[in-house]
Structures are given as C-alpha cells and as structure tokens.
C-alpha cells in the first residue's frame, strides 16, 4: 500500500510512458511483501473462514457447509459474557497502560534533556522484555500468592493481619500482568510522537501565556494522538487475543475469548474455534477502524513531522 503512495507522488512532468514503468516497478517492489502477506495472512484467514462453516463431530472436521457454528456462537450467552469480560480486561489494561505510557513518554521526551540519556532510559524501559513473556507472567504468582512475598511483607509490617486474597487469581492479577506485559507498546509510539513535536510550538504557547496544564492538553496531547492511537491498537489487539495471561493469573476462573478458542481446539472443535476467530477478527478490526478514524496515521507516518525535529532541545 505504501509503495502505491510513493508511486502516486511521482513528478507530474514525465507522465505517460514513465508512469507505467514506474507503476510496474512499484508493483515489483511491493511484490515480496504482498507475497508474504498472501502466504501468511490472507491464505490462513481464508482457511479459517472456510473451516468456520464446516461441520464437525468429536474427532473430525466434516467438510459440509453449515452455519451452525455461527448460530451456536452468536446465540450463546456464554459468548457474549466472555466477550464482555475480554473487553473489560482490554479497557482496563488500555486505560492503565495509556496513563503509564503517556507519563513515561512525557518524562523521557520533555524532562530528559540529553539524547544519550533518552536513548539509555528508553532502552531501560525494554529491559523487562528481554525475558520470556511467560516467565514475566508466572513470576507474579509466587509474588502475589496467599503466602507470597507481598502478603508476607505486608503482614510483617503489620499493615494487614489476614493475607489479601484478591491479589492473586483475580481480575486484579490479570490486569496487573497485562499492564506489565503491554506498557512498552504504549510508551514507544507515544515517545516517538512526542519527539516529533516541534519545540517552538511549546515555546510559543508558553509565550502566549498558557499554563503547563494548558500546554499539555491543547498542544502536546493533540500532537501525540497518532502515538496514542498506534499504542492503543497494539495494546487492544494484544489483550483481545490473549489467553495464557488470563488463564494463569485468574487461576482459570475467568474466561477470555482466546481461552474459549483454546478450549475448543483442545477438544478438537476446530470449526467452533474458527468461527470464534472470525468474530474476534471482525470486532478487533472494527475497533482498529474506530481508532483510525480519530487520526490520520498514514500522514503522520509518511511525513517526518514538520521541519525542525527538535526545537531548542
């Protein structure tokens, strides 16, 4: 798609012959990526679509067209309960990661003055990501448990007398772990957007008498919208598809859409899982479309923001 764009911006002067050659070259350039997408995205999705309308029994997929999978899915209370639950996790995680992500990025972009430190600190943000996802998740369990580190520490300090049970195997634990896992995806794009803000705009606002809060709200926030949007897309789509965090941190007591699919696959009900995957895909695409309506990501990504990257630094 972006190759198309570049081709489209070709100088107007040498139009007719050169254009078609350029077009062809552009297609050629886009071909590898298109091929990869075709193999690893389009084809699997078609396969999922096809399987989702197949019938099944306890061990086999029966290639006969049926809408039964969708009927069972859409008319079941469990489905909507599970989706609602997943949306709740997604919304909570999104709100918290946004708050943390924005604050961190703001600090990195506007308080840390030297580029070297900025790079160093943003690298530090990624340190937790050097270990495996699962390990980061599981390490919360002994920490939050009934006889875990946190409860023991609080009891020793005399803050509590009974271990806090809600800490582990609860929605709280799920959201905590999801935030831990996904905050970085919010920090990086927001930081990136903030770095593109022309510092003279802030100077100008200050000169015009704006307070710090006003600058934040009226200048920085609108200009970071793209970063927020990209971060939100990452976080929401990751959380909507998650199953292992929800399973481990809720102790299997909460459901998520991903978990529901994993359960179906576990008992060989591939068509049911496929139908669910299609529904999830549509809903997430809807969410992404909604987010994209609020910002023009393409413009923000293609034009390296304004002219002067850094104002007075």
């Amino acid at each position: 798609m972006s190759a198309f764009e570049i081709a489209g911006t070709a100088p107007a002067a040498t139009r007719p012959p050169a254009r078609s050659r350029r077009d062809r070259r552009a297609y050629f350039q886009a071909a590898p990526l298109a091929a990869i997408f075709a193999c690893f995205l389009v084809f699997p999705i078609i396969a999922i679509l096809v399987v989702s309308v197949f019938d099944y029994d306890s061990v086999r997929i029966i290639p006969a067209f049926t809408l039964e999978n969708y009927r069972e899915l859409l008319f079941s209370r469990v489905t909507w309960q599970t989706y609602l639950n997943t949306f709740k996790f997604a919304a909570a995680t999104w709100a918290v990661t946004l708050a943390i992500g924005f604050t961190l990025a703001y600090f990195l972009a506007f308080y840390v003055r030297s580029t070297l430190w900025q790079i160093a600190l943003s690298l530090i943000c990624t340190v937790p990501f050097w270990t495996s996802n699962i390990i980061r998740m599981i390490s919360w369990i002994p920490f939050l448990g009934r006889n875990g580190l946190l409860n023991m520490a609080l009891e020793r300090l005399g803050v509590i007398h009974q271990p806090l049970e809600f800490l582990l195997f609860s929605d709280f634990a799920v959201v905590l772990a999801l935030v831990h896992l996904n905050t970085i995806f919010m920090v990086i794009p927001i930081f990136n957007s903030m770095m593109r803000i022309d510092r003279s705009l802030i100077e100008a606002a200050r000169d015009a008498g704006a307070s710090a809060v006003q600058i934040l709200w009226n200048v920085i926030l609108p200009l970071t919208k793209t970063g927020i949007a990209i971060g939100s897309i990452f976080v929401l789509s990751l959380v909507m598809g998650d199953f292992i965090t929800v399973r481990l941190l809720s102790g299997g007591q909460s459901a998520s859409v991903g978990l529901m699919m994993a359960n179906s696959i576990g008992v060989l009900q591939y068509p049911a899982a496929a139908a669910n995957a299609v529904l999830l895909l549509l809903l997430v695409l809807g969410m992404v479309a909604g987010i994209l309506r609020t910002v023009d990501i393409r413009r923000e990504l293609s034009v390296p923001a304004a002219q002067g990257r850094r104002g007075d630094g």
Binding site: S58, E72, S76, R77, V78, Q81, T82, N85, G252, Q253, S254, A255, L259, M260, N263, S264, V267, Q269
Partner: peptide, 19 residues
C-alpha cells in the same frame, strides 16, 4: 469418559468457567 452429549457438555462447561 466421553459422553454422547459431549458437545453440549463442553458448551456448558465453558459457561461455568465464564460465570
């Protein structure tokens, strides 16, 4: 065991987990 009403049972079990 595997029940004859396997499919229904799993659906209901999911309801329990989601509850």
């Amino acid at each position: 065991s595997v029940m004859d009403e396997d499919r229904y049972m799993i659906e209901k079990w999911n309801e329990f987990i989601a509850a």
